[in-house]
Nucleic acid binder design. Structure first.
Lengths: 336, 336
DNA sequence: TTGTACGCGTTATCAA
DNA sequence: TTGATAACGCGTACAA
């Protein structure tokens, strides 16, 4: 690899002159500047980011941590993040916690060791110890998707309670009374809030949530499939199922159909968050869609702001919960 | 950030002793070793990767470049790659070329500048100049998905000609004669090979491929949708459509249905590569599935090997084309 | 067994 | 306007 010294020799000037000429950080004669630029281009000089990093104590990487790299949600967010980061001169390191707090912790250790300039985190951990761990991170952190209570970090997500409530109310309006809930891991903010939206909507309709109708697992389709099978084997079979995320809805629907039930005739299914080409899924799922692009946009924007300003402890943590959007499908029966 | 010097002060020894004790690169008394380790743990010392990188001339990052971050194929590969890389002590930088050679070139420039230790590349460029560009990359490169002819780099992918041929033969067996082909960008290896498989299968059946039935675009669902609309507006409407990748098949199917045709009654649709929960797509698509996990496994394994061995120019480039697997769905009509 | 000094490539400070 | 030099943190050859 060519170094600044090679440029200096080629141009016949000193290395400090080269540095100044290339960065424009001082006065250089026009002729010298041209010579240096020509020499740099001629030998294909590119500044060594490690040397810069060592000098300034930071890298030009930012980290993107997700709980499920195979979920289209992660892909959609990452796409926006990568583009914005690249435009701002940053590269994106991806880590996958796979929904496992231990793996997330390990990833955080590595990324902190790498001195990343900022972290976009979809948190999967829980508890006060976890919050403290996140608070100790020296670089800017923006959390997305999962809100961590009491954490002094920015958060961008979707109004999860509303998401759960809207779908439950819709099912209630259609006359459903026994509504199964396939939830995310208890303790995860979005899981708890979606369940809360469900419970509150039921309560508002004078219905007490039946614990037998509520199951939970990490946000994965395969887990939802299993839980749905269990749910439908119970004595009080629900007339409808609310799945807490996109792949859970797909898994639940698949289980319903595999068990020989018809959807929506026998069992209705609704879900939170969309998948690509969902128009081809039959029956088309009724869902609340998340404004993923906007979410990603805000998240990366906020992170870049923090990184630009340096750690400004004065500014309080921002919190944005975008409204989900109801999208009617054909997966719900009208029982009235 | 804590440095090796802080550890030395805390432990009351010199920095070289710390370095030796931590790396085990020399003789240290047991007591000293314990003291050093305790001190390092106490103050939370982590070696600065930039200083190491500067010292040794390389980073512990490897790069993953894909043409479409939102495609489930990319997510599935990346998941495996990230896990294996993490186990081997590497972090993964993700870049998205979006199918755009210029963006890929820009990404390569950045990643080379970052001195990544290796690159996993899904190449989208073409031409001799492009091949030369890839050859000039100093670090190990493993290409996947798209083969670049004449490039002295390892390649792992799927037998694309076979994929195109198998599906075409299947349609021919069912009695189809006018088979539309929604292909990937001409010049891309997999696009050309899939088309070739299609053409050869037709030829073997005594049929000359009708250029009016062949359209192409970059591997995206939206493009496929448009091309399908165009294709079906033509005078010689096909009885079946072969789409060259997963999202193209979905886009084509969506277009077929949106235009009021029934699938498979009016028009059959087959595609290459699967999507998650494809069992819920109605009609279920007949496809050839790619062994994505295995592909990813081999790709990252080979890359790590190269990185371990250093650049060994003696070893010739390896090339592996995994066989696709035919998966029958319900998206094809039997015309016999 | 431990400490000192140097170099990796870059930038900033200071002197010429 | 330019050039020499120190510093960033680490690892190691060399000296003690």
């Amino acid at each position: 690899m060519k170094t600044i010294r090679d440029v200096a020799e080629t141009a016949g000037v000193s290395i400090s002159t080269v540095s100044i000429a290339l960065r424009g950080s001082g006065p250089v004669s026009e002729e010298t500047r041209r010579k240096v630029l020509a020499a740099a281009a001629a030998i294909g000089y590119v500044p060594n980011p490690m040397a810069r990093g060592l000098r300034f104590g930071g890298s030009s990487h930012l980290a993107f941590i997700t709980g499920d790299l195979t979920n289209s949600f992660a892909g959609a967010v990452l796409r926006v993040v990568e583009r914005c980061a690249a435009e701002a001169g940053y590269t994106v390191i991806v880590a996958n916690s796979d929904g496992n707090p231990a793996r997330e912790a390990a990833a955080l250790d590595v990324l902190e060791a790498q001195r990343v300039a900022g972290i976009l985190l979809n948190p999967v951990g829980q508890g006060p110890g976890y919050r403290d761990r996140l608070d100790r991170i020296a670089c800017p952190v923006v959390t997305y998707d999962q809100y961590v209570a009491g954490l002094g970090r920015d958060f961008v997500g979707v109004d999860s309670e509303q998401a759960g409530r809207v779908l439950t109310e819709y099912l209630l309006r259609l006359g459903h009374r026994r509504i199964g809930f396939i939830g995310g891991s208890p303790g995860l903010w979005s899981a708890d809030m979606r369940l809360q939206g469900y419970t509150k909507a039921l309560a508002a309709a004078g219905i007490t949530a039946d614990p037998a109708l509520i199951v939970a697992a990490y946000y994965r389709g395969a887990e939802a499939y299993q839980r749905t099978v269990t749910l439908l084997a119970g004595s009080t079979r629900p007339t409808a199922i609310l799945a807490a995320n996109n792949v859970m809805a797909l898994g639940a629907l698949q289980a319903v159909l595999d068990l020989g039930y018809r959807c929506p005739a026998d069992i209705s299914v609704v879900g939170i968050d969309d998948v690509p080409w969902s128009g081809l899924v039959k029956p088309r799922l009724t869902i609340v869609a998340q404004p993923i692009e906007e979410l990603a946009q805000v998240a990366i924007e906020w992170l870049l702001e923090h990184m630009a300003q340096g750690a400004d402890p004065a500014m309080p943590a921002r919190r944005l919960e975008l409204p989900p959007r109801f999208v009617m499908g054909e997966s719900c029966a009208d029982l009235r």
